[in-house]
Design a protein around this nucleic acid. Structure first.
Lengths: 326, 326
DNA sequence: CTGAAAGCGCTTACAG
DNA sequence: CTGAAAGCGCTTACAG
C-alpha cells in the first residue's frame, strides 16, 4: 500500500460501503444507539475494526458544537507545583470522560494570552487556567467564549470566572504558629513576589506574627545575598520563605555561611514540591490540596456547562508538612 | 447580552452579513488573498474585528485536511530533561507557523498509547514522541496515520519513523576521559536503567574504560544504599551516574557517609538538568543539544509532510559540562 | 474584483 | 430496524 493512501484515513463512508449499509447506520452502531440490532452492530464494529476506522474528532466537534476537550494553561512546564495541579485536572477530566489539551507560556506573558486563544480556537469546551500571569482582560474575554476556571488567585475576582485556590493567609499562619511553638521569636519572611499569592502569604505572616504577640519582630526581606546576610547577622532564628524555591535559596545561603539547619536557623517553605523533599535537610513546607484543586476545577467547569451562571470561588485549607529543616 | 448568545461565536456568515458581502469574499480577505481589493479587505477586517470573529480551526481543519498542529508526547511532566526538549520543539514549530499540542502519560505506559491516539484523532499533522515508553507497535501504527519522529532512542530503529538522539556512548566516553584525566582509575558506573539510552551509556562507559586501559576497574552498580556503601568501601574514587537524578542520589549518599565531594569522591551525571545546577556541590553533567533536538525533530516532520519516504536517523554529539562535583 | 456552489466527515432529525 | 437528507463552519475551484 503506497504511503499516500496509507495516510488517508478511512471514513464512515468507507465502513458503510464495506459493510453494505448506510453511513448513518454505521454512526448509530458505533455510538451504541439502542435502535440498532445486536447482530448488525457487531458486524459493523467488526468491519470498522478491520478497515482501521477511527472517527474524526474534527468532524464530530464541528457537527456537535462541542469537543469534550478541556484546555489547561500553565505558566511554564518547569514549575512542579503547577504541573502537579495539571495532572490532577487531567485525572478529574478523564473521570468525566473529557480529555485535556495542555498549553504553556514558557514564562512569557504575551505567549500565555496566545495560548488561551489557541485553545479556544481549537474548540475546547472549557478552560482551566493554572497561572497567575494571564492578564485579567484576556480571562474576561475568554470567558465570553467558554467557561473558565482559575486555579490560584487573581488580584481581584474576575466577573464571570470561577476560581479555586488555597488559603494562603492560613498557610502562612500555620508556619508562624509552628515556629513560635518551637520557641522561635525572631521569625523573618523571605519573599520576592508581588503576585497575589505572594502578597497573601505576606499578609498572613504579618497577621500571625501580631497574633502571636511577635509584632515587633516582623521582618520581610528579599532572597538576595546581602539581605540574607543582614538577616542572619540580625539574630533571626527562623525563616518562612514564600515558596520552596526561595526556601531552598535561603537554605543554601545559610549552609554556605556555616550555619546549622535547623539548630541555628529553621527554614520553612511553601507548596511542598519535590524541591522540599530533595533539599538537605528536607524542608518543612505548606501543602496545598493539589488533587482536590484539579477535581474541583473540573467540577466547576461542568456546572457552568450545565448552565450555572453565578460565580463560585472555592477556598481550600492547606496543611503544614514538618520535616528536618524546622 | 445573555450568556447563551455570548457563547455562540460569530461565523463567517455573520461577518459577511455585517459587511454586506459573500462569505467566500470574507474568507479570501481574511487570508490575505491577492484578488481582493485593498479597500474591501480593510473594511472586512474591520467588521470581523468589530463582531469579534475568530475562525473555527475545527472547520478549517476539516476542510483542508490538515491542522497546522503538531502533537508532542512526553512520558511525564516532572522530567525537566524532557520538558526542555518539548519547549524547543514548540519554539521550532512556532518558527514554522505550526502550533503544538502537548500530551503526557503520567509515567503510565498504557496511557501514553491512549495519548498518541488522541492526538492523531484530533488531527495533528505530525507527532513528536519524547518518551521511550511508547510501545513500538503503537509507534508503527501511528506512523501509518501521520509522520512520527522519535526524540531519543528505541531499542531498534522502527521502520517508517525518523529519530533524533544524542550519542550516549560518546557522552559516557567524555565522562570517563574527563575523570581519567583528573587521575581517577577506579571509576564506577551507577545505573538502574535497562532502557535503550541507559544501556547505551553503560556500553559507552565500559568501552571507554577499556580504551583508557582501566578495563580491570569496570564496576556497575544500582543506586541502592547497600550497593553504594560497598562501592565507597571498595576504593572507588569517582562515579559516573546514568543521569542527574541518580547522580544526586549518589551525592547525597556520599555526603551522608561523611565523604567530601569531589576530594574523596567525584560524581558526574547526565542530561545537565536543573538538578545538576541545584545540587551542592553542583554536578558535572553531560549536556545534550536539546534545542537542536527540537528544531531537527520539527524539520524531519516537515520533510515527511513534503514527501520524503526514506527513514532518517540523526545522532547529535553531546558535550561535558564540568562543575564542582568533579 | 466578487458570488454561488460543492464538499471535508461527521450527527441527527425525519421518513419509511 | 434502516436510509436519504440537511447542516456544522470553513475553503476552493468555477463562473461571471
Amino acid at each position: 500500500m503506497p504511503a499516500a493512501s496509507a495516510r488517508s484515513r478511512p471514513t464512515l463512508v468507507d465502513v458503510a460501503a464495506a459493510a453494505g449499509v448506510s453511513k448513518s447506520l454505521v454512526s448509530l452502531a458505533l455510538r451504541g444507539d439502542a435502535g440498532v440490532s445486536e447482530r448488525t452492530r457487531e458486524r459493523i464494529l467488526a468491519v470498522a475494526e478491520h478497515v482501521g476506522y477511527r472517527p474524526s474528532l474534527t468532524a464530530r466537534t464541528l457537527k456537535q458544537g462541542r469537543s469534550t476537550m478541556l484546555g489547561a494553561v500553565i505558566s511554564s512546564l518547569d514549575n512542579p507545583y503547577h504541573t502537579e495541579i495539571v495532572a490532577s485536572v487531567e485525572q478529574a477530566a478523564e473521570d468525566s470522560g473529557l480529555s485535556v489539551v495542555l498549553a504553556h507560556g514558557s514564562r512569557q506573558r504575551g505567549r500565555l494570552a496566545d495560548r488561551v486563544q489557541q485553545l479556544l480556537d481549537l474548540g475546547v469546551d472549557g478552560l482551566v487556567v493554572v497561572s497567575s500571569w494571564v492578564p485579567e482582560d484576556v480571562l474576561a474575554a475568554a470567558a465570553r467564549r467558554a467557561p473558565v476556571v482559575m486555579v490560584g488567585r487573581t488580584a481581584e475576582p474576575v466577573a464571570g470566572i470561577d476560581s479555586v485556590n488555597n488559603d494562603d493567609e492560613q498557610g502562612a499562619a500555620l508556619v508562624v504558629e509552628h515556629l513560635a511553638a518551637r520557641g522561635h521569636a525572631r521569625i523573618a519572611h523571605v519573599t520576592s513576589s508581588t503576585r497575589p499569592a505572594g502578597r497573601a502569604r505576606r499578609r498572613g505572616y504579618e497577621a500571625a506574627m501580631r497574633a502571636a504577640r511577635l509584632g515587633d519582630e516582623v521582618r520581610v526581606v528579599e532572597p538576595a545575598p546581602a539581605a540574607l546576610d543582614a538577616l542572619l547577622d540580625g539574630g533571626t532564628t527562623a525563616v518562612f520563605a514564600r515558596n520552596d524555591v526561595e526556601a531552598s535559596d535561603v537554605l543554601d545561603h545559610a549552609l554556605d555561611a556555616g550555619l546549622r539547619v535547623p539548630a541555628d536557623l529553621a527554614v520553612v517553605g511553601y507548596d511542598d514540591t519535590v524541591l522540599a523533599r530533595r533539599a538537605r535537610p528536607a524542608l518543612s513546607s505548606v501543602q496545598q490540596q493539589r488533587d482536590v484543586m484539579g477535581s474541583r476545577a473540573v467540577a466547576l467547569l461542568r456546572e457552568r456547562l450545565d448552565g450555572r451562571v453565578e460565580d463560585v470561588h472555592e477556598v481550600l485549607q492547606p496543611r503544614l508538612v514538618v520535616r528536618a529543616s524546622s
